[in-house]
Design a binder for these strands. Structure first.
Lengths: 164, 164
DNA sequence: TCTTGTGGGTTTGATTTTCAAACTATTGAC
DNA sequence: GTCAATAGTTTGAAAATCAAACCCACAAGA
């Protein structure tokens, strides 16, 4: 299936087994091994195949497969940065950049539960150009009632569509 | 390896290939297929094997394997709720409950990019006991400089440990 | 007593994924 | 003419996944 030049990359429709759920649908596109690590590297600005392989640790053939499926999912785009010899680099689409909160949440959880001292910290470059440590891991707050959200108090409700 | 009654369930140490990173470490524990969907169901209060199998869509043998590895990872605990016949239910540990933000981020991304109308919405039961729709998907804001965070402006820095 | 149902799994055998390592192809630099 | 760099592909073996069938202890109903 060839994507024409002018088709805006947008994730395709997915169907999920079990409970109808956006998170499950999301995981169908980014839940395979290495996929989110590839997104992490692209978020950090890494662009080239070899660097992606080194920084993720993914086997090269798996990396190739993931890059293809992420591209098909509209999460990354591949573009040549030179011809002869053909060389490519990978970029996140807008949908791909929007995965940053997922990575932040994983960073935060890993920092809290898996390490006494985090193996790496994130610095944020603010609008003044200066960098400062970026703390992660503020618990989610319901923007409506402004209470911290415990999932105990969250109930999923189906919207339209076929009944289960 | 038997876990004694008094050992508090805490995720074990993990090592990751590629870039040293808490997110990668987190994915080693919850990145296998079905794991995060199991956590989702437990967050929703589903407790029993059969219901977990139905609601996630996981094959029963995979579900068994995931429940065991999540337990070993200190993310869930298994307890008998009756003997004769032995019947079990599954609960999230504190570490497991802390995965809620990861699921929220996936919900949010899926809602935004994969559906015109979300297949399910989350309602929040506030402290007054009344329920209201819970909007997801506010972009992350740096708590230090209070700017919305673009990952373009985030740089990972290694902390102590062996140099790469 | 015999059957059916429920809960929580195992087992089976086939398919699919993953893996590390070796290999290829194109080109520029020395 | 040899070397290195980039972006993969190929190979053959190991591991993970799958649907479906099976199992066991018990309870309820006929």
């Amino acid at each position: 299936m060839q994507r024409t030049e002018d088709t805006p990359p947008r994730p395709p429709a997915v169907s999920v087994p079990g409970r109808p759920c956006s998170a499950a649908a999301a995981l169908q596109l980014v839940g395979e091994k290495w996929s989110l690590l590839v997104v992490r590297e692209l978020l950090f600005g890494v662009r080239r195949f070899d660097a992606l392989a080194r920084n993720t640790g993914a086997p090269r053939d798996r990396l190739t497969a993931r890059l293809r499926s992420l591209e098909e999912a509209g999460i990354i785009s591949r573009r040549a940065y030179q011809e002869r010899p053909a060389r490519y680099e990978y970029h996140l689409t807008e949908a791909g950049q929007d995965l940053a909160p997922v990575l932040f949440a994983l960073f935060s959880w890993g920092d809290k539960w898996l390490f006494d001292e985090p193996p790496a910290v994130l610095d944020h470059r603010g609008p003044d150009g200066r960098e400062h440590r970026m703390p992660l891991g503020h618990p989610p707050v319901c923007p409506t009632c402004e209470e911290p959200v415990s999932m105990q108090d969250v109930v999923p409700r189906r919207t339209g569509g076929d009944p289960g």
